[in-house]
Amino acid sequence: DDWEIHFNNITIRLHGVSEEQIEELKELIKNGAHEEELRKWAEEVNR
């Protein structure tokens, strides 16, 4: 699925990401992940 997530003036566009991966991302954000951590997560997902 395609997703677009907005938070802290950042837009993250995701393509072909599962519901499970979105839940992981929500947890990262909820736990106060920094932009660098989110980038690493996105790189892993996009492999």
Rank of each mutant, 00 (worst) to 15 (best):
W41H: 01
K40M: 07
E44N: 13
N8L: 11
G16P: 03
W3E: 02
N31E: 04
E37I: 07
I29A: 02
E4V: 14
R39N: 05
E4K: 08
S18Y: 05
E19I: 12
H6E: 06
N9D: 07
Q21D: 07
K30Y: 06
E20S: 14
S18A: 05
W3C: 10
H15C: 09
N31D: 04
N46A: 14
V45C: 06
I5T: 03
E20G: 11
L14F: 04
A33G: 03
H34R: 13
K30V: 05
R47K: 14
R13M: 07
F7W: 10
E24T: 07
H34L: 12
V17I: 11
R47E: 15
I22R: 05
L28A: 01
D2T: 15
V17Y: 05
R39M: 13
E37N: 03
N8Y: 06
L28V: 01
E24M: 09
K40F: 05
E44G: 08
L38Y: 03
A42F: 12
L28M: 09
I5K: 03
E36I: 05
K30C: 12
E36V: 06
G16A: 08
I29L: 08
E37R: 06
V17E: 00
D1N: 13
G16N: 14
R13N: 08
Q21M: 08
E24R: 09
T11G: 05
K40G: 03
K30A: 11
R13L: 07
V45R: 06
N9M: 15
E37S: 08
F7H: 03
W41D: 00
E27T: 15
L28R: 02
G16E: 06
E24P: 01
L25V: 04
W41F: 05
E37M: 10
I22A: 07
A42V: 13
N31R: 14
K40E: 05
N31Y: 08
D1K: 15
Q21F: 06
E19Q: 13
I29S: 01
E4D: 08
A33K: 02
R13W: 10
T11N: 06
K26I: 11
E20F: 10
E35V: 10
W3F: 11
E20L: 10
A33N: 02
I29Y: 05
I22L: 10
E43W: 11
A33Q: 01
I22Q: 03
E4N: 07
A42C: 08
N9W: 15
K26R: 12
N8Q: 11
F7Q: 01
V45S: 02
D2H: 14
N9L: 13
E43I: 08
E27D: 08
V17D: 00
H34I: 09
F7A: 03
E23M: 12
E20H: 10
L28H: 01
S18E: 02
I29Q: 01
V45I: 12
E24C: 03
L25D: 00
H15V: 11
N46H: 08
E20A: 13
E35I: 14
E43A: 10
E23R: 13
I29G: 00
R13V: 06
E4M: 12
V17M: 09
T11D: 03
L38C: 03
N9E: 07
I5P: 02
E27N: 13
L14S: 02
N31K: 10
L25S: 00
I29W: 07
W41T: 01
D1F: 15
E19L: 13
D1R: 15
W3K: 03
E43V: 04
E4L: 11
V17Q: 01
N8S: 09
R47G: 14
I10R: 06
V17S: 01
H34D: 14
R47M: 15
H34F: 05
E4Q: 08
H34Y: 05
E44A: 11
L25H: 00
K26P: 00
E43F: 10
E4I: 14
S18L: 04
L25Y: 05
R47Q: 15
L14T: 02
Q21Y: 08
L25I: 06
H6M: 12
W3G: 02
R13H: 10
R13Y: 13
